[in-house]
Amino acid sequence: MSGPQRVKFYQTGTFTVGNRLLDVSVRSVQSDRSRNNSLNSGHRACQGCGEALGARYALDAAMRAVNGKLVVANATGCLEVFSTPYPESSWRVAWLHSLFANAAAVGTGMAAAMRVKGRHDVRVIAQGGDGGTVDIGFACLSGMFERNDDVLYICYDNEAYMNTGVQRSSATPAAARTATTPAVGDQPGNVFGQGKNVPLIAMAHGIPYVATASVCDLRDLEYKVEKAMGFHGARYLHVHVPCPLGWGCDTGDTLKVARLAAESGLFPIFEAEYGEITGRRAIRKRVPVDDYLRMQSRFAHLFKGRGDPARVAMIQAIADRNIRRFGLVSEGAPA
């Protein structure tokens, strides 16, 4: 990966959040005692919420990158509901609630307003969950990309409508059990559809910057947010954020699940500029998809009784294709 500085031979490499052996200037935003805590304590996200963590990671990094000159539009969804039951707010950024469908359009408007007011120093982020991004807000998002509006859109992807009770979205993976794709019948769980890879769709708009990231790799995520804030025009960041409640994993295992998604190849982490892939996060310790699936009760039906090896193999094929397609295993790559 071209991004984060690689420091060899330190006790823990750069995989930990902080590293007292590193120079302060190259430490992560999250290791800083005076980080912004953009999403503050007291929010009502479930225990071990990946989205709450991902939002703090991303916005803290953005706040540092633009010296606090940031406004945020937020789509309806978990992130909005758990952070702002009026009159409480967990946000320590200038934050605007919008509808489920139009966060990207509101972001466009905010950017236009700042331009009109001559506030060229103020930057705009629009954010939402996968439902508000890949389904309901998709038209507004595509419009924002096509017009190349000066907005960074961040999607926190937890692979279903979690706030309303775990219903399927078009980001829900094949075979996953949700409230609307129950584990019944001869093809239990979500269908093996065509998939909807919004980062690739964003790239197809040729916008300046598109990247995927995961809460399991903080340094990569921070690097991408900082890099995105260095561009003007439309940018898209897609962050993988496990939901212990909806996925049926232990609340303490959020990052472990996210890590297995990345290390199995199911969630490819890469970045692209103007429609071309420019970097990928190499898999460090490749694992079979089994390891990832078995940790989550939404896939339990794949392993019950004699199991469903055929469909597990189909999921493995998806991971293998990602690895091939995005070049996630590089020969002789440093660990």
Binding site: T12, T16, V17, R20, Q30, S31, L218
Partner: peptide, 8 residues
Amino acid sequence: ECDNCFGV
């Protein structure tokens, strides 16, 4: 003091 708990 790797800051992991603080970060995650």
